[in-house]
Amino acid sequence: MTSTVNLIKLSVGTDSVEGLAEWHATKRAQTGDGLPRHVTRMWPKREAEILNGGSIFWVIKGAIQCRQRILRLDEQIGSDGIRRCAIVLDPQLVRTQSSLRRPFQGWRYLTTQDAPPDLPEGRENEEALPVELNQALAEIGVL
C-alpha cells in the first residue's frame, strides 16, 4: 500500500494567499488545460506517494498559510532542452493553520504528520497572524 507525502515550497514574491491566487490566475502559471502549475527543475523521487492524495504546502512570509492538492506531474521540456517537472495543482487554495518555517531552496517533502491542519470551516477567510506575533507564540510553545 502506498502512503501519502506532501511537498512544501516557498512562494517567492507573494505576500498573501490572495497574491498566490492572483499569480495562479495568470496564463503564465497555468497548464494548457487552465490548471495552475509550479515548474521545478527536479522530478520528485516519491512520485507515487505525492500522487496518492498529496498537497503542496505554501510558505508565505515565513509561515505555511495554505495548501493545494497535487493532481499530476507533467514533463515539460524547456527551450533549453532540459526536462523539468510541472506540478499541476487543484485551483482551490485551502487555508491551513499557520506554521512558521525557515527559508530553504527548492521544495522539501512534508509528511502528513508534520503538515499543519486545515483551518476549520468558517475560519478559512481569517487573516493570518502577523509574522512577529506568530513567531513569539511559537517560541513560547503556544503554536
Rank of each mutant, 00 (worst) to 15 (best):
D90I: 01
K9A: 09
A63Y: 00
E139R: 03
I64E: 00
L51A: 12
V88H: 04
Q97N: 11
V94D: 10
G106C: 08
Q113L: 12
N6W: 01
A63D: 05
L119I: 02
T96F: 05
K9R: 13
L110W: 00
I56P: 00
A136R: 13
R69P: 08
R84K: 14
W43S: 07
T14D: 07
R69M: 10
S55W: 05
E124C: 05
R123K: 12
I87V: 15
P120S: 05
L35K: 14
H24E: 13
Q92M: 08
L71Y: 08
P120K: 06
G122C: 10
A138Y: 08
F104W: 11
R84D: 04
S99A: 14
L119R: 15
G32D: 11
R95Q: 11
V17D: 09
Q105Y: 07
W58I: 04
T40K: 02
D80Q: 03
M1Y: 13
D114H: 09
V5G: 03
L137W: 00
E126C: 11
P36S: 08
P91C: 08
H38P: 02
G141N: 01
L10Q: 13
P36G: 06
Q105D: 12
V88A: 03
H38D: 14
P103N: 12
E124I: 06
I77Y: 06
D90F: 08
T31A: 02
R69K: 15
G81A: 07
E139A: 10
P117F: 03
D90G: 10
H24Y: 14
A21Y: 02
I140W: 00
S98R: 05
L10W: 10
S99F: 08
W107L: 09
I140G: 00
G106T: 13
G81V: 02
V88I: 11
I8E: 03
R95E: 09
R41W: 03
A138G: 05
V142H: 02
L100D: 03
Q135P: 00
A86Y: 08
G141E: 04
E22C: 07
R69G: 13
R41S: 13
L110F: 01
I140F: 00
N134W: 10
W23Q: 15
G78D: 07
V94F: 03
T31C: 03
L51E: 01
Q92R: 14
Q135I: 07
Y109I: 13
D80A: 07
R72T: 13
G13D: 09
D118V: 13
K45A: 15
P117C: 03
L129E: 08
R67N: 12
G53C: 03
M42K: 15
L100F: 00
G62Y: 07
T26H: 01
V142E: 04
T96H: 02
R95T: 14
A25D: 15
D90Q: 05
H24S: 10
R83F: 06
L100H: 04
T96N: 01
Q113T: 10
